[in-house]
């Protein structure tokens, strides 16, 4: 901002007890009184400085002497844009998640710094002012649990409905708000760019802490464990067998989950059990291992 140096000077003059005025500011920087007055208004309104005009000295001081100018001179509008982008980056799934998340974090702290070495590969989002405005309003409604009246454009037409918004999220390059109907009904996702307009009512809804909004799981799918069905010597106390998750399959049989076949094989050799029902490949593997040990034992290798 071009007036930053003037703001800084004015702040220093106040701290020095000089009670500066718009006239002093105009004279110092050779600007008009009107411009100087706008700078003072900016300091008071946007930077929330507790300015107090003292008629006796025909100048300003700080009502709260602990006030400190913020490091970043940013308007509320600029902050809301950064908040919007921070959320978008934070929810973006990419091949270099650490870089994107780092940027999301920085934006979230309003650091205002450039992205790191991945900046040239960061996705670009269109910061539509209308979307940002809707996002802001919905954020307010979510945080204050206010019912929102939505004028929404579906594929088949338009509807007006009262909803209880619970969360903003981004998926597949679009922004959504998760909400449920004011009078019940399942959770729905509403695209922000299809909201024609919205009105935040004065009604407050109760937060439903039960069912989560079903979302498509972001990121790669998890690995499913192998399952071995073992007949154990005795009933298991608890739901693990030597640290492996176990589920009863009836009749003394248990389904044991494992990821590392070699480690599990070791456990089978060391542990106590009656019968390995399945899987067949594990039985073959165990058999081969035992035969190999026997060959070594009898010097047949």
């Amino acid at each position: 901002m071009s007036n930053m140096h003037r703001i800084h000077w004015f702040d220093q003059r106040i701290r020095g007890g000089h009670y500066p005025s718009s006239k002093d500011l105009a004279l110092q920087f050779e600007i008009s009184r009107r411009q100087a007055q706008r700078d003072i208004e900016y300091l008071a309104v946007s930077l929330r400085a507790p300015l107090l005009y003292i008629a006796k000295y025909r100048g300003y001081c700080y009502e709260d002497r602990t006030y400190v100018l913020p490091h970043l001179y940013m308007t509320e509008e600029e902050k809301s844009v950064l908040k919007f982008l921070a959320r978008k980056y934070g929810e973006y799934s990419s091949d270099s998640p650490s870089g994107v998340q780092r940027v999301a974090h920085l934006l979230g702290r309003f650091a205002g710094e450039e992205g790191g070495e991945d900046s040239r590969r960061l996705p670009f989002f269109e910061a539509d002012p209308r979307l940002i405005q809707i996002s802001q309003q919905l954020s307010f409604a979510i945080s204050h649990r206010r019912v929102v009246h939505l004028h929404y454009r579906h594929e088949n037409g338009q509807t007006r409905e009262n909803v209880c918004p619970v969360r903003l999220l981004s998926q597949y390059n679009a922004d959504y708000v998760a909400a449920y109907g004011e009078h019940g009904g399942g959770r729905m996702l509403y695209r922000l760019d299809r909201i024609e307009n919205l009105h935040i009512t004065g009604r407050i809804f109760e937060q439903d802490d039960g069912e989560e909004v079903p979302l498509t799981k972001a990121g790669p799918p998890g690995l499913k464990p192998f399952t071995a069905r073992l007949k154990l010597n005795s009933e298991l106390q608890g739901d693990t067998w030597h640290g492996y998750k176990a589920r009863s399959a009836g009749d003394g049989l248990y389904d044991i989950e494992f990821y590392d076949a070699d480690a599990f094989l070791q456990q089978l050799v060391l542990g106590s059990w009656q019968r390995l029902e399945s899987p067949k490949w594990l039985k073959t593997k165990l058999q081969n291992r035992c035969e190999q040990i026997l060959r070594c034992l009898y010097g047949e290798e």
Binding site: P220, G222, L223, K224, F226, A261, W281, N288
Partner: peptide
């Protein structure tokens, strides 16, 4: 020489 085992459900992961 021993083959690895891949579950159908883990194919590609």
């Amino acid at each position: 020489s021993e083959s690895r085992i891949v579950l159908y459900d883990n194919f590609g992961i």
